[in-house]
Structures are given as C-alpha cells and as structure tokens.
C-alpha cells in the first residue's frame, strides 16, 4: 500500500542521507576520542606491587661508617646477608635515588653517586637482568642527573638511566592524597626496588629521607601533596614498600633544604644505613639532623600505621671501616 505522506527516495538521496549520517557519527566519534583522557578514566590502572622479601629474621637495618661510600654500601649489605639475599638472577631492579636537584655531590642535595653506582654493580653481580636508575627531578632532569654525577656513575656501572622524557608514566590504583597521580611505569615493572635517598633538612616536613623520596616517582600534580605533607608521606610509604632502603649520609644537607646550594649547610657524616624497615632507617636519618624521630610528623604517622618502628636503636651499628 502506498503511503501518501511518505515520498519514495531515489538512490542518490539515499546515498546522501547515509553520507550525512556517517559524517555526523564520525564527528561525534572524533570528539569522543579527543576528549577521552585515558589517564583519568582508564579501567586498566595498575596495582602497585609490594617489593618486600620475606626477611623477618633479619635486623631492621645496619649502619656502616667510613670515608669510602662504596665500601659502606658493601659492608652494610654484607651484614644484611648480601645483595643476593634480595636480588635473584633475572630480576629487574629499580634503584630510586634522590636526583631532584641540579646540584653537585658536594652540595648534598642529591644522593651520592658512588652509593648509587655500587648498588648497581652489586645488583648486576647478583644476577639482575637489568638495573634501572630513575627519578623524576624537580629541576631540569638532564642537568640534575649530569651535575649530581648519578647519571654518568650509574651508566658506567652498567645501569639503564631513565631521565626526563624517557620516563613513562601510568595510572595506578593508589588511593589517598596521591589518588589520580601517575607513577613511573619502570617502577611498577620492577621485581625489586631499592630506595636510596640522601639525608636533608626539609622546610616543610623537617626532614626528607626515604619515605619522602617517593615523591620522585610521581608525575604532574604531586606538588599538591605538600598541603598535608606528613599524612601524604605516610600514605606514600604505605603504598610503596621497597625491598631495601639505603639512607645516604655521606654528606647531609642541614639547612635550606631540600634544594640547598651553600656548602655552609653541608655536613660530612660519611655513613649510610641500609635496612628492610623504612621507618627505622628514616628515624636514624632524622637523628643526624638533630631531630627526635617521633617528632617528625610523617615518621610518627608511619609508625602509627604499622609500617615500621621509629627507633634508630634498632639499627645495628657496624662501626667505622
């Protein structure tokens, strides 16, 4: 039956209407693709692994003293049973120093390069398939890695050094203050993680040590964590559980941290602590700055959350080499 209100369409008009529909659909799809931000809504946000090993029988940490930073690393790790207790053949090890600043080793704003290089060598000697050294610097990344000496030293020791644009960031399932912030992908891919901060005074949190060092694995927007810094640091410490913490106190920055610059603010301590209790290690670092560990807000908060014990006496002092 013919519908008087419906005109038959010819082939040409049908093609035109289909083209119009396809164009409209294409425009909407293109808009969706442009506006869609995978970093915010991706359902494939990755979990953060726990890199700790089952080492309940070990002491929480040890302290090694001496004028040779590399020797201090070897003595400390030997006392903990050797690196191969933590790193196995085929592992990918990520070493996370503090390379936040475009500063020289003498200025003590970044981790000592010899400490980092020795950790690279020991990890490779233990059979690690590859060792990655990475940090997201506050200052220009290339200059920070170069001036701090960490880039050249780590490369010479055999590490892959990730600087600036080489660092890929991904969404993770982190909660709390860091929710929504991206994390360096190499960290999540690692089998073992060694956190290697330097001891520094910090204007806001009093001290920057191991737990604060996790700021350096976070991408754009991390500055907002400063608003409630003690809570944020404790939250990061609960999220990122390293295999080892190595607190570098070869030189420490006692004022105008964390950036520093003046040698008058630097004190040579020639020591380091290595351990599996990040809170105890930070507690020791705090004492070097003349701080009572439990008066440092995030150390007390981390202890309160059961992440470790804020007691530097738990660390065995190996004495001076």
């Amino acid at each position: 039956m013919n519908d008087p209100y419906r005109h038959p369409i010819d082939r040409r008009e049908a093609l035109l209407r289909i083209s119009a529909a396809l164009a409209a659909g294409g425009a909407v799809t293109a808009g969706g693709i442009f506006f869609h931000d995978r970093r915010i809504v991706s359902p494939s946000a990755r979990p953060v692994p726990d890199w700790r090993t089952d080492e309940a029988h070990l002491p929480p940490g040890v302290i090694a003293r001496g004028s040779d930073p590399a020797a201090n690393v070897r003595r400390a790790l030997d006392a903990l049973g050797g690196v191969d207790r933590f790193v196995a053949r085929g592992h990918t090890v990520l070493i996370k120093p503090n390379v936040g600043w475009d500063r020289l080793p003498e200025q003590a704003a970044d981790t000592n390069p010899q400490v980092v290089a020795e950790l690279v060598r020991l990890s490779l000697a233990a059979g690690a398939r590859r060792v990655i050294v990475a940090d997201i610097s506050c200052n220009d990344p290339a200059r920070s890695f170069e001036h701090s000496g960490i880039g050249p030293a780590a490369r010479a020791a055999g590490a892959i050094v990730l600087v600036g644009p080489k660092i890929r960031l991904v969404r993770t399932r982190t909660g709390g203050p860091a929710a929504g912030l991206e994390v360096m992908e190499a960290l999540l891919d690692a089998d073992r993680v060694i956190n290697v901060p330097v001891v520094k005074q910090h204007s806001l949190s009093l001290a920057t040590l191991g737990m604060k060092n996790w700021f350096g694995v976070l991408g754009r927007g991390r500055a907002r964590l400063h608003q409630n810094i003690n809570h944020s640091i404790a939250e990061l410490a609960a999220t990122f559980r390293p295999t080892l913490t190595v607190i570098d106190a070869t030189r420490i920055l006692t004022a105008n941290g964390p950036q520093g610059g003046s040698l008058a603010d630097v004190r040579e301590v020639h020591a380091l602590a290595a351990g599996i209790d990040p809170v105890a290690c930070d507690a020791w670092g705090a004492t070097l700055l003349g701080l009572e560990p439990r008066r440092v807000g995030y150390i007390a908060a981390a202890e309160g959350r059961g992440l470790g014990r804020a007691d530097p006496r738990l660390l065995e002092d190996l004495g001076t080499a």
């Binding site: 936040g100 506050c138 910090h202 204007s203 806001l204 949190s205 920057t208 700021f215 500055a223 400063h226 810094i229 105008n256 941290g257 964390p258 950036q259």
Partner: peptide
C-alpha cells in the same frame, strides 16, 4: 608552581 621549583623549600 613554586613547589615544582623548590619542593618543600617553597614553604
């Protein structure tokens, strides 16, 4: 952006 420059030193 001062925290991006100075981190905690911005305080």
């Amino acid at each position: 952006t001062v925290y991006d420059w100075l981190d905690g030193g911005a305080a």
